[in-house]
């Protein structure tokens, strides 16, 4: 019986959100979870730094949030399901987030997806 936990072969461009990442990203993910509620989104927009501090984000996480940099958020332990709620505050969907992470324009990213169907 094989388990991915024992499979050391990394998958390029992919972070497995395991226990190690869950420990690292807990504060960041907890803040993003709070964005399910409109009050959380409004409080963040009213004072970003104070809101990050309230959840105990570290400097790396705060910088990633400040720079709106999704890859840095993932490195800092962010889980994409919660980060999607952060992106939602700015009206960004998964294709905008995909474009940012791959360094493509949103149009080029969408074209790549269409191409995958051919």
């Amino acid at each position: 019986m094989t388990s991915y936990l024992h499979d050391a072969e990394p998958i390029p461009g992919t972070t497995i959100f395991d226990g190690k990442m869950a420990i690292k990203g807990y504060a960041l993910n907890k803040m993003c979870y709070s964005f399910n509620d409109a009050e959380g989104r409004e409080a963040f927009l009213a004072d970003e730094e104070a809101y990050c501090d309230k959840f105990g984000l570290n400097e790396e996480q705060k910088a990633a949030i400040r720079n709106r940099n999704v890859l840095d958020m993932i490195k800092a332990g962010g889980n994409i399901y919660y980060l999607a709620k952060f992106a939602g505050i700015f009206g960004l969907g998964v294709q905008d987030v995909g474009a940012q992470q791959t360094g493509m324009t949103v149009e080029a990213f969408k074209d790549m997806l269409v191409e995958a169907g051919r």
């Binding site: 461009g13 999607a84 992470q101 791959t102 990213f109 169907g117």
Partner: peptide, 13 residues
């Protein structure tokens, strides 16, 4: 599908 990382947009028909 893949939403996260540099591999975002990966699809395997």
């Amino acid at each position: 599908h893949q939403l996260d990382g540099e591999r975002a947009g990966f699809i395997n028909k």
